[in-house]
């Protein structure tokens, strides 16, 4: 994974609360067996009109939003299914971070694992950011991950929470699986000390 430290990017807002993963990437896109092509399905139902042409009213389709790398959205972003296809689609589209007043738990965890930064801000800052974007569709924000700071247009900086382990992994491009693998001895000791509750290869009675 590429390390993430600081970056600036154009922000685009989809100012809706409770955006679920079925909106981010509808189920018909989940038939892939790899991660490619998902960006085409991002926000599909909102992004395209019935005839398949881009919906000019959808924020991502406005010319000023071209090249945006930061998505601003309402609270409880990413609720619903555990599909990692949702962060894959956002990342595939070019987003590096999503800024929202809150995130659904599974989405937040999935995003951190692939290097799509979920940035939590308070409602007030969220509304401030929305007005900046409304006034200037080319609005950019900067993110300083090591210092957990988000710099808003106009220069105000707010700090955002992120657990220190996830931050460490992202800043250094370390992947989490490697960390668990280092615990191999402890895992083996746990297994040796704990009886197996089930064995999926061998039912206790014929089913």
């Amino acid at each position: 994974m590429e390390p993430i430290t600081t970056f600036s990017g154009k922000a685009v807002a989809v100012a809706i609360n409770d955006i679920d993963t079925d909106q981010i990437i509808p189920a018909r896109w989940l038939k892939v067996t790899d991660k490619s092509g998902l960006a085409d399905g991002l926000f599909e139902a909102w992004r395209y009109l019935a005839d398949g042409t881009p919906n000019p009213d959808f924020p991502l389709n406005r010319p000023a939003a071209a090249g945006a790398s930061v998505l601003v959205a309402g609270r409880n972003f990413g609720c619903g299914s555990s599909r990692e296809h949702a962060p894959w689609a956002l990342q595939g589209y070019g987003f590096k971070a999503v800024i929202a007043p809150s995130f659904a738990d599974i989405f937040r965890g999935n995003s951190l694992k692939i290097g799509l930064l979920p940035i939590v801000i308070d409602e007030e800052t969220y509304h401030e950011l929305l007005s900046h974007i409304a006034e200037d569709p080319e609005t950019t924000v900067s993110v300083d991950l090591p210092n957990q700071r988000l710099v808003l247009p106009g220069g105000r900086a707010v700090s955002f929470p992120i657990d220190s382990f996830a931050r460490h992994c992202l800043v250094h491009g370390v992947d989490q699986l490697g960390f668990i693998q280092q615990q191999d001895e402890a895992i083996a000791a746990y297994e040796a000390a704990t009886p197996d509750p089930v064995n999926t290869l061998r039912p206790a009675v014929a089913g």
Binding site: S82, R83, E84, P87, I106, G109, N110, K113, I114, Q176, L177, I180, Q181, Q183, D184, I187
Partner: peptide, 11 residues
């Protein structure tokens, strides 16, 4: 998520 599916499969 799928990354975690990989974690559990492996460890």
């Amino acid at each position: 998520g799928t990354s975690e599916v990989g974690h559990v499969l492996a460890t």
